[in-house]
């Protein structure tokens, strides 16, 4: 903090001038912080509060009954299963894509990066529609699938594929800029010293990108659990079978069971808050270690 000082000290005045040059006056800082916090309160804190308030309004017993209902449990189970398939696949993809884009020059790279971004931009509804047109029984592959007694849409595979589609960019997006920024000197040094490619990746690259990777995985996981629009189109909403958590929440809302709807929502919200908290704690811990090491 800048404190008015009457001491005339050369070092101090210079430091003050510099600080003034790279920092704003107190009143501007306070104003900016206030605006930012007001904005975040309106958009983030209040919706969060509504969900938690709605979930626990009638006590913990009602909340527990809602989340331990068999249909809710089966929705939770299905959501976890899907995440366990989708997230590792997208992680592998993200690392591979970032490696090839950050470490190599090739034609069409800009197009490839745009393509990776595409699933962000494609409406979930269109994603669902694409797979209905492909795999629906009126669709192109539908007759073949049903003659071989295979189901894609209105079953787990369809839900998995639309969620993989929708969350594909998250890890890659996190890693590409990071790895581009870090360059390839360290890897080149390691390779020149005789380490092979896998070892270099494992001991040099991975530690460098670890936080970006974890962050990407957390985001991917959260999005995968929360995907709604695309799943709504391909799931068929069979209670206890193809209802994911977000769909189950909608079902409860439409059954006028608002407390239960918010209770299941609070699970997803709580999970997200916990993962975000872990991420912050780990980062903080790491920063402290670095500071100690530097001191």
């Amino acid at each position: 903090m800048i404190t008015p000082s009457t001491v005339i000290d050369t070092n101090d005045t210079i430091a003050k001038r510099w600080r003034r040059a790279t920092e704003e006056p107190v009143w501007i800082r306070i104003t900016l912080i206030t605006i930012a916090l007001t904005f975040l309160t309106l958009f983030l804190v209040l919706p969060l509060t509504v969900v938690l308030y709605g979930a626990f309004e009638h006590g913990i017993g009602v909340w527990y009954a809602a989340v331990s209902d068999p249909d809710a449990l089966s929705a939770i189970r299905l959501t976890l299963l899907i995440v366990a398939i989708v997230v590792p696949l997208n992680t592998l993809f993200g690392v591979a894509a970032a490696w090839s884009i950050a470490k190599f020059e090739f034609r069409g790279k800009s197009i490839l990066i745009s393509l990776i971004d595409m699933p962000f931009a494609i409406s979930p509804v269109v994603v669902g529609l694409i797979f209905v047109i492909l795999f629906g029984s009126q669709g192109w592959l539908g007759p073949w699938l049903s003659s071989n007694d295979m189901r894609i849409i209105f079953a787990v595979p369809g839900i998995v594929i639309v969620i993989a589609f929708g969350t594909l960019p998250f890890i890659a997006r996190e890693l590409i800029p990071l790895m581009q920024q870090q360059g390839k000197e360290e890897e080149e040094a390691s390779l020149t010293l005789g380490a092979n490619g896998w070892k270099t990746f494992w001991y040099v690259t991975l530690p460098n990108i670890k936080w970006g990777l974890i962050y990407g995985i957390i985001l991917c996981n959260a999005r995968a659990m929360g995907e709604f629009g695309a799943v709504a189109v391909v799931s068929g909403r069979i209670r206890g079978e193809t209802n994911t958590m977000p769909l189950h929440i909608e079902v409860l809302y439409n059954e006028y069971m608002f407390t239960a709807a918010f209770a299941v929502s609070s699970l997803l919200t709580g999970l997200a808050l916990v993962t975000i908290a872990i991420k912050s704690a780990v980062e903080w811990n790491d920063e402290r270690r670095q500071r100690i090491a530097a001191a």
Binding site: Q182, Y203, P207, N208, W211, E283, D286, Q290
Partner: peptide, 13 residues
Amino acid sequence: MHPPHSASPWQFS
């Protein structure tokens, strides 16, 4: 946010 070198790869793995 992304501290380099600090952590051993084993921790990560």
